[in-house]
Amino acid sequence: MAEGLRLEEVVICQGGAPLVSLDAAVRPGEVLSVMGPSGVGKSTILSLITGSLAPVFHFEGRVLLDGEEITAKPAEARRIGILFQDDLLFPHLSVAQNLAFGLAPGGSRAARRARIEEGLCEIGLEGFGPRDPATLSGGQKARVALMRMLLSDPRALLLDEAFSGLDQGLRAQMRRLVFEHARARALPVLMVTHDPEDAEAAGGRVVDLGSGGSGG
């Protein structure tokens, strides 16, 4: 299977000792949930995939996206979208500027503006472009962060406890929105979470790193 995200015998070591290992494949449109208690190295796997692994870690194995190895590529060339627990909207930019930062380059100014406004509509925030992100509610910020990431036209999606920061009601709504968009764009999704409800809502396979090792 060439399509999708594939982790081939990935082992991440710290100070020579293996920290976490995973061998898994995620097909386009599929969600793979990686579970386990904190400190087990779930997020470290995601930083390997995004290309932001701290130099104190070493790794073995390969990460492939649509059949192409990406582990040697710089982070910005990988086209791997990621959402964290916090929205991480850039506080010095307006909502529209945040989206423009994400929007893949190219196109006329008018076309880019139209695309951003369209994106705002998709998440139910028409006219929010000039707003200061700090004035948005938690749910609104999360949606802007999602749209910013989608506009960068990623080929895979990583979720790092992406729903843990939201209240109960909002969480279900946000899960639905993220998984819908990922499915519509046929993105492979790798979700790291400690919340069984997240995994249940995703409906895909579950790997438990806490119960001794790798799977997939």
Binding site: T50, G51, S52, E76, A77, R78, F84, A104, P154
Partner: peptide, 23 residues
């Protein structure tokens, strides 16, 4: 500074220099 802001910016396609200057 929260390094995840840098991770997000890189994931959005910004090179290291752009992350430094723009974020």
């Amino acid at each position: 500074w929260d390094g995840r802001a840098g991770t997000v910016a890189r994931a959005l396609g910004a090179g290291p220099l752009r992350v430094l200057l723009r974020v």
